[in-house]
């Protein structure tokens, strides 16, 4: 199959970093904080690269929207095995308000421009926890969607997708072209090896602007303030079952 896959990769604050809210409540502290690729995007990249290794697709293109720094995230995807990158440059005020709606418009426009057959995204980003971009991209393109995917098989030009739903698993079959969003258990992303990191430096990243794609990045959502969540009081450790029962009774729970 000569398919082309677009994979979205988002640069987010590293999952291990403790989030701090800015004193003026305008957002969270991002300066001097370690950033990495959103973990769900890593799973998406891995799935795309696996499809390529099985010779089911021809080319994997990694896309990221944001300022100059997102090129590092694209490089990571290239080191994992993506063939080339597209950096959609959004900076300053536009980047602050960049949300899933704007990103999905960009992804949809790129899918048409690049004649993609499949878009794989992470199911959600660990910063805004929106879980929207895949669904919206599919809607804008009028493509079917396989969200929360935990297993994907390509069968005669159709995709069989096992999805993680609330009560268990669900299996659907969707036509190509399609949009997939990766859930946690779809695969285990590989570590980029040093030779591959070096090779990735030679791979091409094209720079485009949303306006080149005919996308307006204005947002009608406005973040008024960001606050710390209410403090959680510490838990207690009990030694025996009787202690536990005692505590529960004390608290009036049983």
């Amino acid at each position: 199959m000569s398919a082309r896959v677009l994979v979205g990769v988002k640069r987010v604050i590293d999952y291990a970093v403790k989030i701090r809210v800015k004193p003026d409540h305008s957002g969270v502290v991002t300066d001097g904080v370690k950033h990495s690729m959103n973990p769900f995007c890593e799973i998406a990249v891995e799935e795309a690269v696996k499809l390529k290794e099985k010779k089911l697709v021809k080319e994997v293109v990694a896309v990221s929207c944001g300022p100059q720094q997102v090129q590092e995230t694209i490089r990571t995807a290239l080191a994992m095995g993506a063939d080339r990158g597209i950096h959609v440059e959004v900076s300053g005020k536009d980047y602050e308000t960049l949300g899933p709606l704007q990103v999905s418009k960009i992804m949809a426009a790129l899918a048409k421009k690049e004649e993609a057959d499949l878009i794989i995204l992470g199911k959600q980003a660990i910063d805004d926890d929106c879980n929207q971009t895949g669904q919206m991209t599919a809607a804008l393109l009028d493509w079917p969607q396989g969200t929360f995917a935990s297993e994907v098989t390509l069968e005669a030009e159709k995709l069989k997708v096992v999805r993680e739903v609330d009560g268990g698993l669900e299996t659907i079959k969707i036509n190509l072209p399609a949009v997939l969003t990766a859930d946690l258990r779809l695969n285990t992303p590989r570590y980029a090896t040093l030779p591959n990191i070096m090779k990735a430096k030679k791979k091409k990243i094209v720079n485009v602007k949303p306006a080149d794609l005919g996308v307006d990045v204005n947002s009608r959502l406005e973040v008024l303030r960001v606050d710390e969540p209410p403090q959680r009081s510490a838990g207690v450790k009990v030694e025996t079952v009787d202690d536990l029962l005692g505590k529960l009774k004390e608290a009036g729970r049983i």
Partner: peptide
């Protein structure tokens, strides 16, 4: 719910509005 999240994005994109999750 997975169902809500499934629908939310598709509906919102068709209306060209930015949805808000959860």
């Amino acid at each position: 719910s997975v169902l809500e999240l499934q629908l939310l994005g598709r509906v919102a994109a068709k209306l060209d509005v930015a949805p808000i999750s959860e």
